[in-house]
Design a protein around this nucleic acid. Structure first.
Lengths: 108, 108
DNA sequence: ACGTCATTTCAATAATTCTTGAAATATGAA
DNA sequence: TTCATATTTCAAGAATTATTGAAATGACGT
């Protein structure tokens, strides 16, 4: 995962509405959720939702697929794990470390 | 971890320089690194570095301590794990899921 | 083809965030 | 105390990002 995409992904998540959208889709799992249903659950206007979904899509955190006249969005779990790996990479320079709960860190 | 702090933390990381600073401190581990050394390694001006460190501190991602005339910053690993937990909370509504590498998700 | 519903795009404005350099503060050394 | 070094603060301008409503697109059922 390249640094620019990581910055973009973090920026996408760094907003109240988009964070809520993403978490909703994480809970929804691979089945995902239609744009309209997301808008309804979070009380967002269509244009605002679309703006935020575009941002999340561009960051590759969510993926849309067409289903009839709905567009279903689902969370991209690979992007999530890639992001976490990037943040914790080479934690404590490889020494057994204080952050043992983190994936990719050597346990103490 | 409350949602506002998560948004702040993600926003703090969503910037090339701050992401680089944080990753440097993750590698440095609990010993941390003096502000000046960070500036040198990343080629940042003092005021710009200070601005970004303040932002990271405010998001509780890094913690400063005074050491002589230096100020040593270190990564806050608890905040990092809290952030990851927040993002992946109730992944796939609790069902064994596609994102099995994520902490907090039930394995498939 | 027509009407309807789901979603996206656009343009204008408003709000937030970044960068820079100069000045201020604080610590330790001489 | 005086000096040099480490770091932060401040203010101004530049750049980016968010919000809104109206209009446009695209898909389906009739």
């Amino acid at each position: 995962m390249d640094s620019n995409l990581v910055v973009r992904a973090l920026g996408a998540l760094a907003h109240e509405s988009r964070l809520a959208i993403f978490r909703l889709l994480v809970v929804a799992g691979p089945d995902g959720m239609a744009a309209g249903e997301i808008a309804q659950q979070l009380g967002l206007s269509p244009s605002s939702l679309s703006f935020h979904l575009k941002d999340l899509s561009h960051a590759e955190l969510v993926t849309p697929r067409q289903d009839g006249r709905f567009i279903i969005y689902s969370a991209n779990f690979d992007a999530m794990t890639g992001l976490i790996a990037f943040l914790t990479e080479n934690c404590c320079a490889g020494a057994p470390c204080a952050a043992s709960e983190l994936p990719g860190c050597r346990k103490k």
